[in-house]
Design a protein around this nucleic acid. Structure first.
Lengths: 207, 207
DNA sequence: TGCTGGGCAAATTACGGTGTTTTGTCTAGT
DNA sequence: ACTAGACAAAACACCGTAATTTGCCCAGCA
């Protein structure tokens, strides 16, 4: 696995290689399940030798994990944008963020196959019983976005809100609940009181 | 499948039969996985003929579902108690309820095998991708307990709180998060503002 | 009436062997 | 760095067969 970029070019090239492969996986996942996609398919689909794929990701399992992170990153970026563009209002930030999440999830190839129940691999476990890493990463990213927007808020409150949001997001990803817009509104309605109270507390502490 | 109880005695007898079988399953689940427990094991373990077992539960799958409900009922009852004995304070009610849940889950044979990742059956799916029924049942029970304790609260608020509590409970059941007491406290801290606001709203609407 | 116990076909699962595919690694070549 | 070819080892797909289990029917019995 290449680890030490010696020049900016090489770093960029490596990045291109990775995203090409990951994006290829994304496309392939649209038509067949992960089980039916071989490393050879992946490599040739990306126009790359199988060996290069192994050099970059180490193993098949390593690739799934990387893809999961890549996938999570895509969603998290959108959610971060939603939060930071909400103009400082917790209620609309929460609602927009959750809505964006739900909308991206239904379009996500990996998520779709998992939700459909057709899960021959232990793929569902990666976001439930073995979902620790994903939860931590996602919660940290969220916490970052939130505390960037509400700089006064106490860390503990932001952490709690973030981790719970992710848990609820994963819950709704695996078991949707009717209209996404309605769901997002509900979540916002439920969590807004806590968020506003946290901001209030912070303001009092500061002033 | 017997459906029409003609006398109180027969109803009681049938109930006894069911709980005996379900309780036997619970014991057997402590030592082996559901996969390795045959209907014959179950019947003989309960001191009952295999045919009786089939008469009562219809099929193997019917039994799992019944057991799931039985198991859920046990937990829900404890949670209901916790809520109703909290003396009207939302914060302590939420904390106690969640704590009771977490404590019961780690002792639950079925839950333990699922969490351990050793899940040859599609058992995990029953509380995630296929968890619709469980979610609805549990949320309804919770909603009942809550609105029994806070009669003023608006139905929509109670519903929302209940369904979210169950989602979070299932999330923490499949992916625990350190100290149960701490977790329960966090959940309470997060949801209390909404609960108290809901009560306040109700009081205003009423008065 | 409700439970038992035996019996029984059909479905499911376990096993063993075979051939193929795929993974993961190593190499020489560009 | 990436490719292309080769390779052993592991994983997987079949296949037929045997054993187990399910689900149901029925006769007997309290």
């Amino acid at each position: 696995m290449a680890t030490t970029p010696r020049s900016p070019y090489q770093a960029a090239a490596r990045q291109l290689l990775r995203t090409t492969l990951l994006e290829t996986a994304r496309e392939l996942l649209r038509e067949r399940r992960w089980n039916d996609i071989t490393m050879a398919d992946l490599a040739s689909g990306a126009g790359v030798s199988r060996q290069t794929l192994y050099n970059e990701f180490g193993s098949r399992d390593g690739f799934v994990q990387a893809y999961l992170l890549y996938d999570a990153d895509r969603i998290l970026s959108a959610v971060e944008d939603a939060i930071e563009s909400a103009g400082g209002d917790p209620a609309t930030a929460l609602e927009r963020a959750f809505l964006v999440f739900l909308e991206m999830i239904v379009q996500d190839p990996l998520a779709v196959t998992v939700i459909s129940g057709d899960d021959p691999d232990g793929l569902l476990a990666l976001v439930t019983t073995r979902g620790g890493p994903v939860l931590r990463i996602a919660a940290d990213r969220l916490a970052g976005a939130i505390s960037r927007t509400w700089t006064q808020a106490a860390d503990a409150d932001v952490q709690l809100l973030s981790v719970t949001l992710v848990r609820l997001a994963l819950s709704h990803a695996t078991l949707p609940d009717g209209d996404p817009a309605e769901t997002a509104a509900s979540i916002a309605k439920l969590l807004t009181p806590f968020a506003e109270l946290a901001l209030l507390r912070a303001a009092v502490d500061a002033g």
